[in-house]
Design a protein around this nucleic acid. Structure first.
Ligand SMILES: [Mn+2]
Ligand SMILES: [Mn+2]
Ligand SMILES: [Mn+2]
Ligand SMILES: [Mn+2]
Lengths: 221, 221
DNA sequence: CATAATTATTAGATTAGTCTAAATTTTTAT
DNA sequence: ATAAAAATTTAGACTAATCTAATAATTATG
């Protein structure tokens, strides 16, 4: 007996979840409106509805935050989204820049069993094609340490473990430079004036802008 | 550049398609209302909208029929539904009585490439788990010959190739009697008063009601 | 701290899909 | 051929999600 939410409600919860992750303050109406590509007035209406259903805490003019129940639902949607992305890349041979839009739809499929069966079929992946962690059945999720390539010191080596920006453009850029999850990178030098860095990757030197390096999650080796 | 229909519109077109298959007359408002589990007045409204968009031909009080364009869309939905059902049964190990509801949702996922990639991943199945034919990419579909087990003469043998009723109850009944697609059946005798028949299957005799036998598609051997 | 700028909420419409109840048309049966 | 029954459409209302324009609250700034 699942609580039946509309796709729209689910999307709002997911957006609030992701905005909470990156700010720790209450989520503002305007920010949520931007994320949802809608108007602030629409957001206010929806927020009231979600508050009535106890998925968010809301006080007028003070933004929203997810309740325990709201968080649980948001994490479930994230889990579904990421598992479907793994399916699309690993089984259907999509590339990592093509799967997000389809997963946005698939994440709303309702079934008590489907996603667990899918997870098993995919052999319990821990991360999605963009390096984002996949919550388990109980909703536990291991968060990134959030070390960006831009903060790695000169002479240090690291492994690319995720992308912060999952836009198709960024991912295609990475493909073109042969940078992918698991790539080993050594920082050779850093320019002070624009924060661009020179890295060694695949035995070659490559110069990348700050814009790029600050969107790559790494693990220091 | 696909024409974007709502899920509801797609479901109406699919229902009209299936009702047209089983009657050859125009589809009446009442019949469509029953199929869609809605009211006749709602159907009238939707029919007008679909007629405006040229997916159906409609004259007041005279029922509807699909246009070429409407038919094309309906067949696409059927294709998606059936391929997803194959995925659920063959890859995720669902049984044939569990997949319909989930496929009802999955059939509405929009993507120009997804279903063709799925079809390839499934190795181009020709029939779904209930024996229904899967339209190809171009919308070509091979229809059943529609021979029912109930019409097979005594002493004749046949192979079960499909079910007309795909309800979970019926499918579970078949499972319990170990009747499945591909089963070879010989008609031993027929009762005149209730049309029940005795068949030989799996080297055993089994008596089945008319209700059952008229819902099984067969191929005479 | 007062006023301006920004942010958020409310008021009132709109669209899709649905419903009930009333009116109309078609079909069936005398 | 007419009246009764059944099917269908129309009228008017409701919910979910959205929008624009107007109002109100918060915050930033001189
Ligand atoms: Mn994604
Ligand atoms: Mn992802
Ligand atoms: Mn089905
Ligand atoms: Mn089927």
């Amino acid at each position: 007996m699942e609580i039946q939410l509309t796709q729209t409600e689910e999307n709002y919860l997911k957006s609030i979840y992701s905005l909470e992750l990156s700010s720790s303050k209450n989520v503002s109406t305007t920010l949520l409106a931007k994320k949802m590509k809608t108007k602030a007035s629409s957001v206010t209406d929806m927020i009231k509805k979600l508050a009535d259903k106890d998925f968010v805490d809301y006080k007028k003019y003070r933004g929203v935050s997810l309740t325990k129940g709201g968080n649980t639902i948001a994490v479930k949607i994230v889990r579904k989204h990421r598992l479907w992305e793994v399916f699309l890349v690993n089984k259907l041979e999509y590339s990592w820049d093509e799967v997000h839009e389809i997963a946005e739809q698939l994440e709303h499929i309702k079934s008590d069993t489907l996603i667990d069966k899918l997870e098993e079929f995919l052999e319990f992946p821990t991360h999605d094609p963009h390096g984002d962690p996949i919550p388990d059945k109980e909703g536990n999720i291991e968060h990134h340490k959030n070390i960006m390539l831009s903060s790695v010191k000169v002479e240090n080596s690291c492994k690319i473990i995720g992308v912060k920006d999952s836009s198709s453009e960024f991912l295609k850029y990475l493909d073109s430079k042969n940078i992918h999850l698991g790539s080993i990178v050594k920082v050779i030098s850093k320019e002070v004036f624009d924060n661009s860095i020179t890295i060694e990757i695949n035995k070659q030197l490559l110069s990348i802008s700050h814009q790029i390096s600050k969107n790559l999650f790494v693990k220091i080796l």
